[in-house]
């Protein structure tokens, strides 16, 4: 008899826990996110010409020589960043295929440089941000390559 009672308690406590933790909590949090922080809640999307071109946080497929390229072997497979040294190594290729001055490309990387630890650590850049900056700076060169 006591066994049946504790089983019935277990089932009822399971159901109320499920409603509170598995439904009410995430739905309330979604509501708060949509109202208070809609940009982040929807994946930090970057806009170009008024339409979304994907998330700031997800690596995009850049394969033509005129762009900086992401790496393909990282843990998540969508690492949006590359180290400064890897970015620097791509400058000659982009210069050769676009004619954009090396000093400008170097300056672009400096402009978007971030560090893995606030102001020190390993320097890196977000590939989408720096490519978007090139597109906006040289629209005529890049127009055949973009959406």
């Amino acid at each position: 008899m006591r066994g049946v009672r504790s089983l019935s308690t277990a089932v009822r406590l399971t159901l109320i826990s499920l409603v509170i933790c598995g439904l009410v909590f995430p739905i309330v949090m979604t509501g708060i996110g949509e109202v208070a922080l809609p940009w982040q809640s929807n994946g930090s999307q970057v806009y170009f010409d008024g339409k979304s071109i994907g998330s700031d946080l997800i690596a995009q497929n850049f394969s033509v020589p005129v762009f900086f390229h992401p790496r393909n072997d990282s843990a998540s497979g969508v690492d949006p960043d590359i180290t400064m040294s890897y970015a620097m190594s791509q400058i000659p290729r982009i210069h050769n295929s676009t004619g954009i001055p090396i000093s400008f490309l170097y300056g672009a990387l400096q402009k978007y440089k971030q560090y893995t630890l606030f102001f020190f650590g390993t320097p890196y850049v977000n590939v989408l941000n720096v490519n978007l900056y090139l597109v906006e700076s040289y629209p005529s060169i890049y127009s055949p390559y973009i959406q």
Binding site: I27, G33, S41, G54, D56
Partner: peptide
């Protein structure tokens, strides 16, 4: 920057 949405996954045309 961690998303919180129930809007479904979407396929987006990216820059290139």
């Amino acid at each position: 920057g961690v998303p919180q949405s129930l809007g479904g996954y979407s396929t987006i045309s990216t820059l290139q």
